[in-house]
């Protein structure tokens, strides 16, 4: 099996398809909707409405750029509070109109900056966790690259969470983890091996329900292959989730996250 840190490198490849790429390929008639109605439009989070086949849906994504100019615009995929609040606004809108929500996760984490703290990064993430847990429409989240900590979880408290084969999802980057626990960021490779951040590990832990295949070397080598797989799986899953009565959907989502924890008593 591929060492965990090799997956970290693939997950971070600049050439890796972004949330916008998947949205364009999978959905029809996407209309992007901007802003949190409060402070500004955070380009690290994109969102809008579209059709999945003939089902109206709300789509969200954390967006990384493929070049410096795009990355400056979208802050290297590190959202500010207004990004999370935009996502929440669109999720509540989806709830109002009974649309399922599909989110694409790709962030090293929420942005650690002065403005982000002043505007309540912690509060914004917390609110999303609480609201997503209780959102009365089906939700599916797909980690397409990096799933970095609370900044990723803020869009991933969903009925189904899937990961691409070469994506990672972790409490912190392996570098950050090594730096906190061993005071040595250079031990990131060792940290990655320990942390259980790969799709295989997380499927086994029950953190995700599905792994979506990529071609050798990563999905940038055959984007259509992975995007079509996602599309096919969404076309199966979304109608199935829409069949469930709301109470059942919410109880199952509650139980999905309720089960995590390893302790004795």
């Amino acid at each position: 099996m591929m060492p965990a840190y090799d997956k970290v490198k693939i997950a971070r490849k600049v050439s890796r398809p972004t949330a916008a790429d998947y949205i364009e390929h999978i959905f029809e008639g996407f209309i992007e909707l901007h802003g949190d109605r409060n402070f500004r439009d955070d380009k690290a989070v994109i969102g809008g409405i579209a059709f999945l086949g003939d089902i109206p849906v709300t789509v969200l994504g954390i967006q990384k750029g493929k070049n410096m100019e795009d990355n400056i615009a979208c802050n290297f995929g590190q959202p500010h509070p207004e990004g999370y609040r935009k996502a929440l606004r669109l999720m509540k809108q989806a709830e109002k109109f009974g649309r399922p929500v599909i989110s694409f996760i790709n962030t090293s984490g929420a942005y650690p900056g002065v403005g982000a703290e002043e505007r309540g990064q912690g509060e914004a993430i917390a609110k999303n966790l609480m609201e997503m847990a209780a959102l009365k429409v089906p939700t599916v989240s797909i980690v397409i690259g990096e799933g970095g900590s609370g900044g990723a979880l803020a869009l991933a408290v969903a009925d189904r969470v899937w990961m691409l084969e070469n994506s990672i999802y972790a409490v912190l980057s392996p570098e950050g983890f090594a730096s906190i626990l061993w005071k040595d960021a250079k031990r990131a490779k060792e940290a990655a091996d320990l942390m259980k951040i790969t799709a295989e590990d997380l499927l086994e832990l029950g953190v995700i329900e599905k792994i979506i295949k990529e071609v050798d070397g990563g999905c940038q080598n055959d984007f259509g292959f992975t995007a079509n797989l996602i599309k096919g799986k969404l076309e199966m899953e979304i109608p199935a989730l829409m069949q469930k009565p709301v109470d059942e959907l919410l109880d199952e989502r509650y139980a999905r996250f309720r089960k995590f924890g390893e302790f004795t008593e």
Binding site: M130, E131, V157, A170, L181, L194, I197, R253, R258, E262
Partner: peptide, 20 residues
């Protein structure tokens, strides 16, 4: 950190209970 992703999932778990 020592409990990895399981710790991250606690954030969702507690927030869901707070929501109820």
């Amino acid at each position: 950190m020592q409990e990895g992703i399981v710790s991250l999932m606690q954030m969702a778990k507690v927030s869901a209970a707070a929501a109820r």
